[in-house]
Design a protein around this nucleic acid. Sequence first.
DNA 1: TGCCAGGCCCTCTTTAGGGCCTT
Length: 216
Amino acid sequence: MIKLTNSKHANLSRPADTVIVLDFETTGLSPTQGDRAIEIGAVMLKDGKVIDRFQQLMNPGFRVSGFIESYTGISNAMLASAPSCEEVMAQFADFIGDYNLVAHNASFDQRFLDAELRRVGSHYIGQFACSMLIARRLYQAAPNHKLGSLVSYKNIEHDGVFHRALADSEMTASLWLAMLEDLDRDYQLSSPNFGLLQSIAKQSKANINQYLQRQK
DNA sequence: TGCCAGGCCCTCTTTAGGGCCTT
């Protein structure tokens, strides 16, 4: 078991710009079709820095496909000794508390988070923001808006590991911070925060510059 | 064997279709 954190942050103040950046590895694309989570990774960002981490494999109760083994590098042998999804998700619910949440293509991770927490009778109250939708607004010149492509586009340092939960959540967190820095630099927004980035995703591509100018 | 979901967004649109993203 690799648990990189505990509940030591439980008593910290919870400003709106402290967020949990998370990523699931799963057996497939849809929890409504029987797919389950096999790994969760997350980092806690506070004041532009990672202050806590969570990573855990979890046993979905059935063998994963060869495609998933190849895609993620997570083998059935690795999952055989992992704790159950229910055990891990109960711990993860404690980690995310009531913080706001960020993920790349958040609709995907939100579906699995909802499904897995529902199984353990838990829930969260934070709001979700999607780094992919925001990047589509801010980085319209990027070749595409896959996480790996955006990491290259923004020259974000990484260790070469992709499609593992903690590594992807670390890269998503770096992308999130890059977007905050770019807003500060390009639009002189001194305190870009979760709410602003969440609202950026809802603007049209054509009007995003005008919208940001109005936020000064 | 081949395909499977779902939300967002664009356009050759809105009584629709298809690409992008996630595993």
